[in-house]
C-alpha cells in the first residue's frame, strides 16, 4: 500500500497528528490568534459554567443518600430565616478559591462512588457512618480555619452589642484564644452524632500532631489576661 507520493500509506491518526503539527499556511497569524482566543473563552466559560452547575442545591440533593442531610439542613437558620439570605450546600462544603474548589470537586468523586455502592443508603447505615462523615468535615474546616464559614462571617464585622450576651462573650473568647468557627459550631447544619465531642477532640489532636504543633494553652492565655487585667493602670 502506498499513497499518491509513492510513500507508505499512513493511518488516519498519523495523518491527523502530522496535520496538527504542520504550519497553517492557509491561515494568517491573526486568524489563528483570534480563533484560539475565542475558542479559549468558549472552552473556559463552558468548563466554569459546568462546574458551577455542580454547586447548585438541586445537584447536591439529586442523590438519594442526601435526603437525610437535606431534611436536617431545612430545620436550620441557614435554610430558613427572617432575612431570606441562605447558605446552600456548596456555600459550606465547596471553597470559593479556584485551586481549593477544584480539589474539593475531585475529592467529591468518592461521594458518587458511595452513592453507587449504597454505603449510606438506609437510615441505619447513615447513622452508622454519621460520626466518621462529620469528623471528615470537621477536620477540613479546622485545618482551613473554617474558611467556608468566613466567606460570609467575620469577627471583624460582628457587632457584639446586638448579639445575645452569651454569644458575644463566646465570640470574644474565640478571638482571644484564636479559636475557629467549627470549634463551637460543629452541628450548625446537621444533627450531631453521639460522642461528637470526643471525636472532635481527637480530630483536633490528630491535626496538631500532624502539624507538629503543641496543643494551645488556653488556660495559660486566660491566666495571662487575668494577670494583665489586674495590673495597676
Amino acid at each position: 500500500m502506498s499513497d499518491t507520493n509513492g510513500g507508505p500509506k499512513q493511518g488516519l491518526l498519523r495523518r491527523l497528528w502530522n496535520g496538527f503539527w504542520s504550519p497553517a499556511s492557509a491561515f494568517s497569524l491573526g486568524f489563528i490568534l483570534i480563533s484560539g482566543f475565542l475558542g479559549g473563552i468558549i472552552f473556559w466559560g463552558g468548563f466554569n459554567w459546568s462546574l458551577e452547575l455542580t454547586n447548585t442545591e438541586e445537584f447536591c440533593v439529586s442523590c438519594h443518600t442526601m435526603e437525610t442531610n437535606l431534611g436536617e439542613y431545612r430545620e436550620t437558620i441557614h435554610y430558613n430565616n427572617h432575612s431570606g439570605v441562605r447558605a446552600i450546600c456548596s456555600d459550606c462544603h465547596v471553597p470559593h478559591e479556584w485551586q481549593h474548589k477544584v480539589k474539593a470537586k475531585i475529592i467529591a468523586v468518592k461521594d458518587v462512588y458511595h452513592e453507587l455502592v449504597g454505603t449510606i443508603s438506609t437510615p441505619e447505615k447513615y447513622e452508622e457512618h454519621r460520626l466518621a462523615m462529620a469528623a471528615q468535615v470537621w477536620k477540613k474546616m479546622k485545618a482551613s480555619d473554617s474558611r467556608e464559614c468566613r466567606n460570609c462571617h467575620s469577627f471583624e464585622y460582628m457587632d457584639f452589642t446586638i448579639q445575645e450576651t452569651r454569644a458575644a462573650s463566646e465570640h470574644q473568647r474565640a478571638i482571644d484564644n484564636k479559636m475557629t468557627c467549627i470549634d463551637c459550631h460543629q452541628g450548625i447544619a446537621h444533627a450531631l452524632p453521639e460522642g461528637y465531642l470526643e471525636q472532635y477532640r481527637s480530630v483536633v489532636e490528630d491535626l496538631q500532631a500532624s502539624n507538629g504543633k503543641a496543643t494551645p494553652h488556653n488556660a495559660d492565655v486566660a491566666a495571662i489576661q487575668t494577670y494583665v487585667g489586674g495590673l495597676p493602670k
Binding site: 479556584w98 485551586q99 481549593h100 477544584v102 480539589k103 474539593a104 475531585i106 475529592i107 468518592k110
Partner: peptide, 18 residues
C-alpha cells in the same frame, strides 16, 4: 482513600491553576 483523593485533588487543582 481520602489521602489518595486529597493528593489527586491537589494535583488537579495545580494543573488547572497557575
Amino acid at each position: 482513600m481520602l489521602g489518595f483523593l486529597d493528593l489527586l485533588g491537589t494535583i488537579g487543582g495545580n494543573i488547572l491553576s497557575f
